[in-house]
Design a protein around this nucleic acid. Structure first.
Lengths: 69, 69
DNA sequence: TTATAATGTTATATATTTATAACATAAAGT
DNA sequence: ACTTTATGTTATAAATATATAACATTATAA
């Protein structure tokens, strides 16, 4: 999974800390997500997409093959 | 969060076991998800949506307020 | 250049998802 | 009624997301 969080966050001029606060997680969590180091819960993904004024699938992008087998 | 999994699964004529196998989880996991008892990982949500030929947000529906604090 | 803000790192603890297994009930077919 | 298939339940274990805290590095502004 790759993510456009960092890019979208920059566009909205939000710092990691800003975003973390808005979606109610720790800033470290945002760091890990931006590094693709983990797979957020759907709810967190939805909150983040909302703050980035985007759709979930435009923020978190899966390769076709990741979703098969 | 409410989910339309059960309904969409019925339309595609998939049993819980079928769907579980396709997305590589246990059937019990599907049961819990259909009951809304937990918040899947984004990746699992994406796999399920794919098998149900739907978009994530049409399968798992959040109330506005759930995404705000 | 120095201060401050922003980002990144690491280690450990806690919470929640998912797996596993065993059994129970319901529905559907014969 | 019996058999099979689908769904639901419960308890426990394992895996992984997230919290927490402390510190390191990089960028930016004064």
């Amino acid at each position: 999974m790759i993510t456009r969080m960092k890019e979208l966050r920059a566009i909205r001029k939000l710092t990691q800390a800003d975003l973390a606060k808005r979606v109610n997680v720790r800033r470290e969590t945002i760091v890990f997500l931006e590094k693709g180091e983990y797979n957020p819960s759907l709810k967190l993904a939805a909150k983040i997409a909302k703050q980035l004024e985007s759709r979930i699938e435009d923020v978190f992008i899966f390769d076709e093959e990741e979703l098969i087998e």
